[in-house]
């Protein structure tokens, strides 16, 4: 019964690798780019350009932080609208230079706060969904820990979505689900099971393409797979690329 919740616990565990670890272990000469040019710089989202072997790529990651201090600084990976707008700005720059985009997703969800609502959290995510769908350059999103609902999807409209073996991706947090269903957030274990949120569940539901085993080889493995995938997808003309991305989502939940 607790298998799904164990995954939730592992995905959230202290000491688990976060976006900064993936960025520093997979890419070289990473240059971080700040700000959304609209309002501010969201520390929950790291964006920039680095080399994947010899290939320049745009890298975006939602960062939770490790220490208590870092978590405060990163708002524990709950992005504000500025974070999604910063990401989109970097994706547009990537498109201009036909550079592939990698997104690392690790968030309990987009931030639920007064400022976030005032500055259009819903609008910011919505814009990423439409713009990413037609972005004329390859995009791969990887859920490395928590994939929290719309806040995760806002960086996961991609040609392929991959997940780490102990990561989760869900329409709602198990706690939120339990509190709505049973008015009891402590029943989150049961809710985790019901939601079918593990990487293995999502693979069965054909919502993701690949699952990566968690070992010390994971960075090398991801580097190799990303490089292979982009080498292939860069050959496609933008029209075939975006048509395939549209079809990828189009068929999810379509009647037989």
């Amino acid at each position: 019964m607790a298998a799904a919740y164990e995954k939730v616990a592992l995905a959230r565990a202290k000491g688990r690798a976060t976006s900064v670890d993936y960025i520093s272990n997979i890419f070289e000469n990473f240059l971080e780019m700040h700000g959304d040019r609209r309002y501010g710089d969201d520390k929950s989202v790291i964006a920039g350009i680095g080399y994947l072997i010899e290939m320049p790529v745009t890298v975006i990651g939602i960062e939770k932080g490790h220490s208590v201090k870092e978590r405060g600084f990163r708002n524990s990976g709950s992005a504000h609208p500025e974070g999604y707008r910063k990401a989109l700005r970097q994706m547009k720059l990537a498109e201009k230079f036909s550079r592939p985009v990698v997104c690392f997703v690790d968030t309990p969800g987009a931030y639920c706060g007064i400022g976030a609502e005032e500055r259009g959290q819903g609008q910011a995510i919505a814009e990423n969904l439409t713009e990413m769908m037609t972005l004329k350059t390859p995009v791969i999103s990887i859920v490395i820990g928590e994939g929290g609902s719309g806040g995760a999807l806002g960086l996961a409209v991609a040609d392929e979505v991959w997940m780490l073996e102990n990561s989760v991706y869900s329409v709602i947090s198990p706690e939120g689900c339990a509190s709505i269903l049973w008015k009891d957030s402590s029943r989150s274990k049961e809710a985790s099971e019901c939601l079918k949120l593990t990487a293995q569940d999502l693979f069965k539901l054909k919502v993701i393409e690949k699952i990566f085993p968690e070992s010390d080889k994971v960075y090398a493995h991801l580097k190799q797979e990303l490089y292979a995938a982009f080498t292939k997808s860069r050959q496609l003309d933008p029209q075939s690329l975006t048509a395939a991305r549209y079809e990828r989502f189009r068929k999810i939940g379509a009647p037989e």
Binding site: L129, T130, S149, V157, L197
Partner: peptide, 20 residues
Amino acid sequence: ARMQEGILSLMQMAKVSGAV
């Protein structure tokens, strides 16, 4: 999104956005 359909309902956001 309708949580009783789990991740499949979340994916509808992307699907509809694509069509829009």
